[in-house]
Amino acid sequence: MGRQLQPVQEMYREAKGGDRRALGRLLTRIERGGPPADEIGELAHVDAGSAHVIGITGAPGSGKSTLTGRLVELLRDNDVRPAVLAVDPSSPLTGGAILGDRIRMEGTPSTEPSGTRSTNDVFIRSMATRGHSGGLAVAVPQAVRLFDAVGYDPIIIETVGVGQVEVDVVGAADTAVVVMTPGMGDAVQANKAGLLEVADVFVVNKADRPGADDVRRDLDLMLDLSHVTGQEDGSGYRPPIVMCSAIDGDGTTDVWQAVADHLEILGKLGRRHIRRRHRIRAEIRATLNQALDSRIDDLIYSEVGERLVSDAQNASRSPSSAAAAVLDHLLGRR
């Protein structure tokens, strides 16, 4: 049977039974969106528990993939089954992408070629943004829910912390980890990108490099002076700054400890459900945005829309008045 034709329910059943091939295919359906994605969402919604969702972000070259790889190794050694969703930007010109996080995450190869990872205790999926910021905001939570439903916990979302959507995606995790490195003016950049507001844990990677302590000091200062206290403002929680060297594996345990501690504190403060609520709200909003976007496009390119565009072009009406007319159509007011 052609793989495109396999029904979603059947794949879902197989994925729950541990078939990673089926899980891989379901994730493709989610990425493509539309009715099959909704159907997967319905199924996963029922089974999803409360996996710990961790967002990891940082500038390109900050070593966040290597750090993610180290965390995955650590978790696997402790009989935990993590899933990783590695989000990378698509080329805005061609829509293509080179997704290389996987090789940065895989552990060091063993002496035996057959000894490279082959068990089903971890699942890594690369996802390109595909030029749809809105699509990503829908696809990521759906993929996370699917991972949760088939039994992966924790679920790590790794993104390049540059775009607002990526920041939102990470900020909507239970625990948001922001990775910085010495010598790149990272603390300042992160501040500009709005990452300081969403971070629950700061990691200074490449801590063996000169300047690592400066980054720590800068962060401390910003936390002190700018009243940046992460998302748990008013709770007394202060995002810790963890030093590590992902390439050697030094400090990985400390990073994990800080992440686990944060989850525990969220629980104690009774705030975890607030995070989840944020997440669900964001997802509903993103889904709505996407639906509206698509309807707006339909309208704009319809006969009515083209006429309104022409009107605005020959100055018989203003663009804002044209937009108001489109909105009326959209809301069925005309």
Binding site: L23, G96, G100, R102, P113, I124, A128
Partner: peptide, 27 residues
């Protein structure tokens, strides 16, 4: 990439097992 495809780059020193795993997970 420039032809609009998504390339999952595994690079050097891969084994048939590691490629099979990637093909499954990345569909």
């Amino acid at each position: 990439r420039d032809a609009g495809m998504e390339v999952i780059y595994l690079g050097l020193r891969q084994t048939t097992d590691s490629i099979v795993t990637a093909v499954m997970e990345e569909d």
